[in-house]
Nucleic acid binder design. Structure first.
Lengths: 234, 234
DNA sequence: TTTTTGTGGATTGCATGCAATTTCTGCAGC
DNA sequence: GCTGCAGAAATTGCATGCAATCCACAAAAA
C-alpha cells in the first residue's frame, strides 16, 4: 500500500492493541497519580510541565483535565489552570452517602436480576476475599473488595447505575487510599459482605439493599474517622 | 499603561460577568440542541461544520465533545469522531431507575436536613405548580417540576448527590422531551408531589424516599410507554 | 511601614497547521 | 450489475504558535 516513510521518530511504540487517544492515556495516568496521592491535594497542574512529563502536547492534556474535572478530581479555574482537588471530610461524607445510595439501588435490582452464574461468581469472590483476609494481604483484599462491589452493581443490569458508580469510584478510592481502615473494621467488612451475598441469593431486594447501604456507610464512617485523626495529627 | 491596539475585531462582547471558556459555551449549546432534539440521534458532529456554526475553533469544540461524552449525550469513536448518542427504551429505563435511586437517597437525607425556610420554599413551589397544572401551562409546569426535584436534592446538603443528579439530568430531560407524558400521568404527578412534601415536612425519611422513588419510576414508565408508541409509529 | 502601581515573565486559552486515518469515488474485473 | 480496490478528498488527532491574562516582585506613593 505504498506508505511513504517520512516521519522518523517513534519514541516508543505502544501496544498495537491499545488504540486509545492520548487524552485517555493522560487522564488515566493523572487519575492514578491523584488517587494514589502521588499528586498532592492543591498541587498545581502546569500544562507545560505535565505535557513534558507525560511526553504529549498540551492539547490532549487539556482535554484530560476537563474529564478529571468532571470526575471531581481536579478543580479548573478559568485562566488559572488546573489544581488537584482537595478532599475534606465533608466531601468524604457526601461521597459515601452517595455511593451508599447508588449501591443500594444496584443491590435491590441485582437481587432480582442476578443470574445463577453471577451468583456463583460472587460466591467464589467471597471465598477468595475471606482467604485474603485470613492471610492478611491488604493489596489483594482491596482488589477483591472492588470486584465484589462492582459485580453486584453489574448484576443490576443497569448501565447508568454502573456508570454513576464508575464516576464516583476514583474519589472513593482516593479517600480509601488516604485513610486505611482499622483491622477491626476490616473484619466486620468481610462478614457484612457475607450477609449481603446471602440476601442476594435469597432474592431479598430490600434486605440486600439495606445491608449494602449500611456497609458502605460504615466503611465511610471508618474512613472519615481515620481521616480526621490524620488531619489533626498534621 | 500604553497598550498597543493591534487587535481590531471584537465581534460581539459577551457579558463581562460571564467568564466561561468557549468549551463550556459550546458544551451548553450542543447539550441544549441534543436535549431538545434539534440534533437527531445518530447525527454526525463534524468538527469543521460545528466549529463554523458555533463560531469557534476546533480545539474548544473537541473539549466540549469530551464533556458531553462523559454525560452520555454523544458517542465518541476513535478516528471517526462524535455522533449524537441514540436513546433506546432500555437506556431510558436505566436512567429513571438510577434517578429514582439518587433522588430517594436525596429525599431521605433531606427529610432530616431541610431547614424551615427550605420547606416553606417547597410549599410555595407546590402551590405554584398546582396553579400551573390548573391553567394547563406545560412549559412553566416543567420548569417548576425541575425546581421541586432539584430543591429536594439540594435539601440533602450533599453536593455529590446533587452533582450526580446534574450528571443524569440532561439525559432525563432528553427522554422527557421526546415523549411527553399523558395528561392523566400529569395529574397523578402533582398529587404525588403533595404526598412527598408531606412526608418531608413530617421528617419521615423512609416514606419520603420511597414516595419519591416511586414517583420517579412512574414518570419513567409513563415516558417509556410513550416512547415505545412513538418508536412503533415510526 | 504599609499600600499601591507598574512591569517582565510565565501561563493559559484559542487558532491553526500537518500527518495519519477514514471515507468517498471512479474504474477495472468477474 | 456487483465486487474489489487504487487514489483522492475529507476528517480526525495531535502539535505548535500567538495573543490575553495572571502572577511575582520591585519601585513609588501615602
Amino acid at each position: 500500500m505504498g506508505r511513504n516513510r517520512i516521519t522518523v521518530s517513534v519514541p516508543q511504540m505502544t501496544n498495537p492493541i491499545s488504540r486509545a487517544g492520548l487524552h485517555d492515556v493522560a487522564a488515566d495516568s493523572l487519575r492514578q497519580m491523584i488517587v494514589e496521592g502521588e499528586l498532592e491535594p492543591g498541587a498545581r497542574l502546569g500544562e507545560k510541565v505535565l505535557s513534558e512529563v507525560l511526553g504529549i502536547s498540551r492539547t490532549p492534556l487539556r482535554e484530560s483535565f476537563k474529564l478529571l474535572a468532571a470526575e471531581g478530581l481536579v478543580d479548573l479555574v478559568p485562566n488559572k489552570g488546573a489544581r488537584v482537588a482537595c478532599l475534606d471530610p465533608d466531601e468524604v461524607r457526601d461521597l459515601f452517602e452517595a455511593a451508599a445510595g447508588i449501591e443500594r439501588s444496584g443491590a435491590e435490582l441485582a437481587a432480582e436480576r442476578l443470574t445463577r452464574d453471577e451468583l456463583e461468581r460472587l460466591d467464589q469472590l467471597q471465598g477468595e476475599i475471606e482467604d485474603e483476609f485470613a492471610s492478611g494481604n491488604r493489596e489483594r483484599y482491596f482488589r477483591l473488595n472492588q470486584d465484589i462491589h462492582q459485580s453486584i452493581l453489574a448484576g443490576s443490569k443497569n448501565d447508568v447505575l454502573v456508570a454513576a458508580h464508575r464516576w464516583l469510584f476514583p474519589r472513593l478510592e482516593r479517600a480509601r487510599y488516604q485513610a486505611l481502615q482499622s483491622p477491626e473494621r476490616w473484619r466486620h467488612s468481610v462478614s457484612e459482605h457475607r450477609d449481603i451475598l446471602l440476601a442476594l441469593k435469597e432474592g431479598d431486594a430490600q434486605r440486600a439493599g439495606q445491608l449494602l447501604s449500611r456497609h458502605v456507610l460504615e466503611t465511610g464512617r471508618s474512613i472519615i474517622a481515620n481521616f480526621r485523626d490524620r488531619s489533626n495529627a498534621a
